[in-house]
Nucleic acid binder design. Structure first.
Lengths: 188, 188, 188, 188
DNA sequence: CTATAAACGAGACGGTACGTCGCGTCTTCAT
DNA sequence: ATGAAGACGCGACGTACCGTCTCGTTTATAG
């Protein structure tokens, strides 16, 4: 099936060091200051080893995130029994994602990565951001599914992104309003 | 009180040439390829003249957009009498914003600019993207105002942004579903 | 007596392909652009097969030249009966050695090889350049031998090299003057 | 005459630092290990500042040598009254030119530079190597001039170059034989 | 009417990062 | 054991821009 090839195979040590270095540097400094040379330096690896396997820094980063080397905690919703409240809390956490004290907002950096790299962009919406939301959101919407469920997830996550881009401060209450608006008022 | 000074005043010709060049280059090549040197070259201006008046390329761009040197047409909603449909159409146009035939999506570039420059980011949400939406959206929501109106606008525009970042194709129908989800089902 | 060994012995096909590739690339592009990777690629051979048998590209080249894969014609003097004239002609040919139409002077490349590789350098003087000259030069000098003969050969070949390095144009007449000066005026 | 230009002029400090760095690195490590990056690093200068003014490392070096930042001492012949002996001494010094204890022969490096850079090559013969020789050589040859004088200088200097390339050891006596052969036997 | 000084076009400067090439070593698989 | 293939860490290549800093020129005020 796979065409046979001779020669050395890909070094897993190098691959892993690169992804770790990319995740760490991204978390510390943000996407703009993330450079291929910096990743190579930190990983103790030649630049060519990065270019051999990834077309751009964005794709390195996308792979690092998908392997949960970044954003691990963010990928689970809390569960207090109240789905609407849990969603609002999770959105608020997403909004406040911070790397280092002086770091830029991590969410904003993630958006920059998605804007600059099709690979990151492609995965951001479904695999990274919206995925954790789906189950509980379906419950909160009274069993919605398909296009409407997707639209609601896009609206919630997108709303948070837009607010993060604006640099204004939004709190938990604002996120509650967002949830109420998109999901509809809470039943009583 | 104003401290007296001699010498020539700011050249409007230079200012205008810079903003035009920035708008044109952004539309043609996107935010990542937008450079101060490129703007200066295109505008026939010294680099220092840019640095004297703006702190970064993002701020130049923000000013250019605000002066309607870019995105002019996008800033008005169509008016067919059906507010929900008009909003969906406008969102779809926003999603499809293209610069040149082969250009990257312009919306994605706008997001990159907003992620990279606080000035651009600050203005993007309220002054550029959401502003045209407000009046008609209030009508569509049956007279909503304040936080709920803002939340709905964020959800709609943010949803489109998230979808643009994902590089999937979304059509007018998808935008209609988005509107229905956020605004609520159409009354009959 | 011969120590027994298992496994394949040195592949003559590989050895020959490497020397041919080195000679061809040297003739086409000069010494500076001659690379081990290029030789391996052209010869259809792994890099290691070159490194296994030669310590540097200079040594590969030296061997290629010595096996007459390069400079074959240059290694014989013409014979018109007039030794002084034959020497001048041969020196002029040496000076004009060209690889491809647009190639750098081949002699200059040879000098670069000699300067960069002790193996090539060691052999250039005695085995490659001066050797063909010796017999006829001895005749032209009236039976000189030993140190004086060697000195004369060095002076002639060295003079041509210096002139080639200078990038000026020298013709057959100039070479005649060189011969007259070193060998002494023609007897009448 | 000269077309007027505005803007900053060339920094003499940078120019001088670059030439000094190139001369020092060449003397210490030879031509092959001389790199643009190394020169820039040593000179405390951006790479672009080198590329702005010189097309290649060879041209930087040529300029450094011509300004006597290198080989200063080598450019005068000793004067003991005996022109033939002085020439032989000078040739022997040329042959032995060394940079550092472990350095490659400096003359060989100079030849590599000349082979690799037309600018260096062009100047090497007339301005650097042969020039100091001319006056005394004319005397030794009994008033020779023009083409014959040039041919003799080429033969002497070229002979030394060829011998240096060969990596054999040649001493003062060998140089005396070279002089005798080229200049003709000493008169008595 | 000067002088002064700011704004301007131009672009040199010390840097950082880019993406590519070649080095010499090492690893895999096939013969 | 050899050989083809090629991944690896490394370091230099030549280019593009960064943001700062001169230059020489132009032009609006202040004296």
């Amino acid at each position: 099936m796979a065409l046979p090839r001779s020669g050395p195979i890909r070094s897993q040590a190098a691959r892993s060091a690169i992804l770790d270095a990319a995740a760490a540097l991204f978390a510390e400094q943000g996407y703009d200051l993330l450079t291929i040379e910096g990743i190579a330096r930190r990983a103790g690896v030649g630049k060519q080893t990065i270019y051999r396997w990834w077309p751009s820094k964005g794709d390195v980063l996308a792979e690092a995130i998908l392997e949960r080397r970044l954003l691990g905690a963010q990928r689970e919703l809390p569960d207090t029994g109240d789905a609407r409240a849990d969603i609002a809390t999770w959105l608020s956490d997403l909004f406040t994602l911070r790397a280092s004290p002086d770091g830029e907002g991590l969410l904003r950096s993630l958006v920059a990565a998605a804007a600059g790299s099709s690979e990151t962009g492609r995965r951001l919406r479904t695999e990274i951001l919206a995925a954790p939301l789906m189950n509980r959101l379906a419950v909160a919407m009274g069993g919605a599914a398909g296009a409407r469920l997707e639209a609601a997830a896009d609206a919630l996550v997108g709303g948070v992104i837009l607010r993060a881009l604006s640099r204004e401060d939004f709190g938990l209450d604002d996120m509650r309003t967002l949830v109420d608006t998109v999901v509809g008022p809470a039943p009583r």
